[in-house]
Design a protein around this nucleic acid. Structure first.
Length: 478
RNA sequence: GGCGCCGUGGCGGAGUGGUGACGCAGCGGUCUGCAAAACCGCGUACACGGGUUCGAUUCCCGUCGGUGCCUCCA
């Protein structure tokens, strides 16, 4: 098996992947915060990590993957102010915080299904791991990494010398230009809450008892606790959005490594954000579209998946309707190739014949090359180039010279790695349609053009297009 | 204010110190009874200025522009 390479955030270099246990990968993906309907930008990361998982599986790894659901309500800002997002959602919709979490967890999972994302081995809710989170704080307290102030228990970043290393932070510079007023009881503006007190006793739900007082866990704690609980002290790969680097993952590392004295993860992969119409997605700009908005414009979730997959995960890409339409067309062209498998046969029987078939050999070679491209830091654009070039060759090959099994296997590989459901979305045509095609063929042979055209029209009504070649007619879906 | 990332043809999007990946769109033509989402062909692209070099889109410096994080937002 060939090596796998990842661009590792802490070293900012491409490194050879070496799993902790041979043939196995422990992977953690920072999941969604469930207080509103996920927009297309949110889903980008999960599409990218889905390709990561598919590549690892195709490379022969047994992947154990955990993704969290952040369902604990947190305050809207680091300063002890702002309204809790879950609480706000609950008030807005007149339901409980638990119902808010459930509603948007369901919406996320529904979107994930539409996008054909592989379900992680474990999907863990922060609220299901409160005792583990409390236990982790106890460990940190025992080692002297915590202190309590008026509104909560904090992690003392001054006690963790490597705090700035991961994100290459300039702590002094950040302090000087900070946009936020920090709680000045904190020893350092970078210190973060491990446990927040419900000071005024106003929280009636999502509040728990702890040795330090009634309240709820800090914002970064859940990931550390769930990784420890489900995957162990050190994992192979940790993924997240680029925004997680300076705060969330920096704090996660501080907590976990202070508690365990071991590296939290060997490889950190971060995906760039999606821009929409040239700028950051924001509700106020009206550009944070939902999958439903795409559907309203006639685009499927798979069209969006295609759009995302054709760029590299560390490149910032720009969503526009025009770009989405281009991706949708590309997917349509791929589906037309996939439809060809119903119109071809295996004419070569012996292995010798098969291996001497140039196109079959090219398809076999492409299957390997596509995987190789993904093994090189998820170079999906390169993989797509290989696919496009091969598809172009297939298109100009007479149907009779395309081996059905070779084509089907190629499509299977592409589906396995990219989840575009080329096979599922291109079923065979009905017997009725097949008869119409044969009838039209006969009409053409009899030079009965009026009848032939009428049949073509009839087929178009059934969303079937026809392409006549010197070697016969090819159908495709309209 | 600090720390980043990025600027490639109409739109996306790779890549490279020295013959313009790939996709979408467009144009011209071909095949065809007609058609086609079929085939063939078509683009003087690498923000600007300077430097290094025989030679830079590719390396270095600067400028301008865009964008991100520092507010759990992927």
């Amino acid at each position: 098996m060939s090596d796998i390479y990842f661009h590792n955030t802490p070293t900012n270099k491409k490194e050879t992947f070496r799993p902790i246990h041979k043939g196995k990968v422990a992977l953690y993906t920072c999941g969604p915060t469930v207080y509103s309907t996920p927009h297309i930008g949110n889903f980008v990361a999960y599409i990218r990590w889905d390709i990561l998982v598919r590549m690892l599986i195709a490379s022969g790894f047994e992947v154990t993957r955990v993704m969290n659901i952040t369902d604990v309500g947190h305050l809207a800002s680091d300063a002890d102010e702002g309204e809790d997002k879950m609480l706000k959602g609950a008030k807005r919709e007149g339901i409980s915080m638990w119902d808010v979490a459930q509603r948007y967890t369901d919406e996320f999972m529904n979107g994930a299904k539409q996008l054909n994302l592989i379900t992680p081995t474990f999907i863990t809710k922060a609220t299901d791991f409160i005792p583990e989170q409390i236990e982790l704080i106890k460990q940190l307290e025992k080692k002297g990494f915590t202190y309590s102030i008026d509104d909560g228990v904090y992690f003392d970043t001054g006690k963790f010398p490597h705090y700035a290393d991961f994100a290459h932070l300039d702590l002094e510079g950040m302090k000087a230009g900070a946009r936020v007023d920090y709680n000045n009881e904190k020893r350092s503006p970078h210190d973060f809450a491990l446990w927040k007190f419900d000071k005024k006793g106003e929280r009636t739900e999502m509040v728990w008892d702890s040795p330090w007082g009634r309240g709820f866990p800090g914002w970064h704690l859940e990931c550390s606790a769930m990784i420890e609980a489900k995957l162990g002290d050190t994992i192979d790969i940790h993924t997240g959005g680029i925004d997680h680097i300076p705060v969330h993952h920096t704090n996660e590392i501080a907590q976990s490594e202070a508690a365990h004295n071991k590296p939290l993860a060997h490889y950190w992969l971060h995906t760039a954000h999606l821009l929409s119409e040239g700028t950051k997605l924001a509700k106020s700009l009206g550009n944070s579209f939902l999958l439903q908005d795409l559907a309203d414009q006639g685009f499927s979730a798979l069209d969006f998946r295609m759009f995302v997959s054709q760029s590299h995960y560390r490149t910032e890409s720009n969503f526009t309707w025009e770009n989405l339409a281009a991706a949708a067309n590309r997917l349509r062209n791929w589906q037309n190739i996939a439809s060809l498998r119903w119109q071809t046969y295996d004419t070569l029987q012996s292995d010798a014949e098969k291996s001497s078939d140039e196109l079959s050999a090219a398809m076999q070679q492409a299957r390997e090359a596509i995987l190789l491209a993904l093994q090189d830091d998820l170079e999906s654009p390169q993989a797509f180039r290989i696919i496009d070039e091969l598809f172009a060759t297939i298109e100009r090959t007479p149907l009779a010279d395309i081996q059905q099994t070779s084509l089907r296997q190629l499509l299977e590989t592409i589906d396995e790695l990219f989840g575009l459901q080329l096979l599922e979305t291109t079923p065979d045509v009905s017997e009725e349609v097949k008869l119409l095609i044969i009838e039209r063929q006969r009409a053409r042979e009899a030079k009965d053009w009026a009848r032939s055209d009428k049949l073509r029209e009839q087929l178009a009504h059934q969303h079937i297009g026809i392409h006549d070649t010197a070697h016969g007619s090819i159908w495709y879906r309209l």
